[in-house]
Design a protein around this nucleic acid. Structure first.
Lengths: 325, 325
DNA sequence: ACAGTTATGTCAATCGCTGGTCATACAGAA
DNA sequence: TTCTGTATGACCAGCGATTGACATAACTGT
């Protein structure tokens, strides 16, 4: 592959000058700038990002660590992060931690090795020691972190409220909340609080149950849904903590001959594609994932520039009504 | 961050020696090896991959270019590729081409710039000029490419056959195939051929229709499904070219009061998570995505080692029966 | 005693690019 | 005329590793 030197030689300039046009530094006449671009095209020159990063001590790569790739919520986050990164000339290094602390840690180390511009961490675990002394900004999405890392979340409390209010407004009298994983305290827990507060305020009967990590990994909640339905037979409204859970609630109901929305109303969370692909479609709480992704990338960009960034940003949620309620 | 030099100084050795243990080169006593590892841990040393790649003229990063991230089929491919890459100490640079030629090209250039070990390309387009003179192996998944690039596909022809045979075996007499995008010739086209060949052989009435790129981008096939159903009112069996299409067929049927599987049987393709999240579950043709992903990564690894790799590998498919037939 | 193996040091080039310091021109402006 | 801004050249250290040539020991085994 052609190098800067080749370009310099071919264009009769020096490496210094060529480097200057490449980085928009110092004085450059329009004429030589064109000349350089022409030669670059002619030689099919591509700057060696490795060398660049080495010399600049930082790359334009952003590490993204998620606990799950196939899960539609994370697939959407990844997709929106990639788009936002592309718009700002960043590249995405993707890692799947599978929710495991040790893999998460290992991936952070790999990010260090690769001198990333920053890391975006989507996680369900809660460990903070390993995030000290990082030489790059770390942005957490939907996760609590202190220690100098910034966090991006959506208004989960309000999401829970919206769901409860909607179900109650539709006439439900006995509600059930099916949560995500239970092992750690995380922003999503506030969905439950919002939900319960509204139920209490409106004097509506309710119950909250949580699934487990294992179910989450497999995206297979059937058994627990069945058990919960057995345990709460009067239930006529369900608030599921994700659309994937909600989709499975629909299936279990169908199998049991429970008609949705006539006998049972269901509200999901996230508003990812499955929500619209089921029959009926799932009424859900929409997270502004795209905006959250853009905020995350932009925060890394600004933090790299030495700017201060807010340590916690919260985004609003909205209810999207479909056939399940 | 600590450098090799720091480690050398701290352990009373030289950079050369430390580099030797890092790369398992030359003679090293167990004692110094341990010493070096200890110091590395003590200093929290992480080799600078930028410097390494620069010096070795190749990184342990693999570029993955997909036309879509949220689409469950690609989400699964990405997930399996990440896992396979991790097992072999590779990292994934993820790019979303959105099916656009120019972005695909741009991403290939970025991969060049980053001196990737190889690129895995999932694409629907068919352009070949830009893949010449690549300094790294390029593996195509589900796409035809010549010009010294390797291809991985699944037995689409047989998949089409399986679908048709299954529907006919279940008593369908008037079949409809809903294809993916039509603008380019690609392996998925053979699904249609397998399907049609069986229909002809069994003297069963059939029709094949294709959707468009636009629908594909949005994963929104409702309108075309409605139109196709209107155009082919006698249809009692549908073979959709992806599970996402199949899921929407289920919805359209539900809306029209067509009972699945009693009045209409539906077979999808891919066997991704949506297939099991719908009601009823979707009978589908399963692609061995995990094996395909492993093959792709392993081919890059072997090709980097100068090995010859097969230019075309085909994987078998199987039919997974669920409630939709 | 001598070759061969093992273990390390020394030294320096190299990878491709950044970015600083100087020096050198040639403008036009004061 | 001198000053200042513009445009380049020339040079080079530095980023953090790899890798090769060569030297120097200390051990083995024969």
């Amino acid at each position: 592959m052609a190098t800067l030197k080749d370009v310099a030689r071919r264009s009769g300039l020096t490496v210094g000058t060529v480097s200057r046009v490449l980085n928009n530094r110092g004085y450059i006449s329009e004429q030589t700038r064109q000349k350089v671009y022409d030669v670059m095209r002619e030689l099919d020159y591509q700057p060696n990002e490795m060398a660049r990063s080495l010399s600049k001590k930082s790359s334009n790569t952003i590490g993204v660590i998620v606990p799950h790739i196939v899960h539609p919520y994370f697939a959407k986050i990844i997709s929106d992060l990639e788009q936002a990164a592309y718009d700002r000339k960043y590249k995405i290094l993707l890692f799947n931690s599978q929710g495991k602390d040790e893999k998460e840690e290992e991936y952070i180390e790999m990010c260090k090795s690769n001198r990333v511009a920053g890391v975006i961490l989507c996680s369900d675990t809660f460990q903070t020691e390993k995030f000290r002394n990082l030489s790059f900004p770390l942005i957490a999405i939907e996760r609590f972190l202190d220690e100098g890392t910034a966090g991006i979340e959506c208004d989960n409390y309000r999401g829970g409220m919206l769901a409860a209010e909607h179900l109650i407004g539709k006439g439900c009298t006995c509600l059930l909340h099916i949560g995500g994983i239970s092992n750690h305290r995380k922003p999503a827990d506030e969905r439950k609080e919002g939900f319960e507060d509204v139920c209490r305020r409106e004097h509506v009967e309710y119950a909250s149950e949580e699934s487990s990590q294992l179910l989450y990994d497999e995206m297979d909640y059937y058994s627990i849904i069945g058990r919960l339905l057995d345990g709460h037979p009067k239930t006529d409204g369900i608030f599921a903590s994700s659309d994937v859970i909600a989709a499975q609630v629909l299936q279990v109901c169908a199998r049991r001959g429970i008609r949705v929305p006539e006998q049972m109303k269901v509200v999901g969370y996230d508003d990812v594609n499955v929500a619209s692909l089921t029959t009926p479609g799932i009424t859900t709480i929409r997270q502004p994932v795209k905006e959250m992704a853009e905020a995350a990338i932009s925060m890394i960009e600004r933090a790299s520039g030495g700017e201060m960034v807010p340590s916690r940003s919260m985004f609003p949620v909205t209810l999207v009504e479909r056939g399940s309620t």
